[in-house]
């Protein structure tokens, strides 16, 4: 009862930043995709926390949308990873850098 909303949001912020750091640091595409999942999840958590603070169901609705988006994103992302591996025989995202200027 006495958990302030800020604590929930703080948790979301921490998870989001860890996920961001993961995306920025890792070169393995699978790890990057997992880190993106963490960030999405953190964003969903923030919605739930907000909805709980206001006592409304809108936050949960938003989470469902995020979930749907995450599902779609993961399916396409994993398919891309497979293609990447078939083409370059590696999961290093930096190896697919032929678009460099």
């Amino acid at each position: 009862m006495t958990i302030p909303m800020e604590y929930g949001l703080l948790l979301a912020a921490i998870l989001f930043c860890i996920g961001l750091a993961g995306v920025l640091v890792r070169r393995d595409v699978i790890f990057m995709l997992m880190s993106v999942e963490v960030m999405l999840n953190a964003a969903g958590l923030a919605f739930i926390v907000g909805g709980a603070a206001r006592g409304s169901a809108d936050g949960q609705v938003m989470f469902i949308f995020i979930l749907a988006m995450a599902a779609a994103e993961v399916s396409v992302g994993l398919a891309l990873i497979i293609q990447l591996y078939q083409k370059f025989k590696t999961l290093d995202a930096d190896s697919a850098s032929q678009l460099n200027g």
Partner: peptide, 8 residues
Amino acid sequence: ATQNGKLR
């Protein structure tokens, strides 16, 4: 140099 093609 910013367009190095690296996703990260």
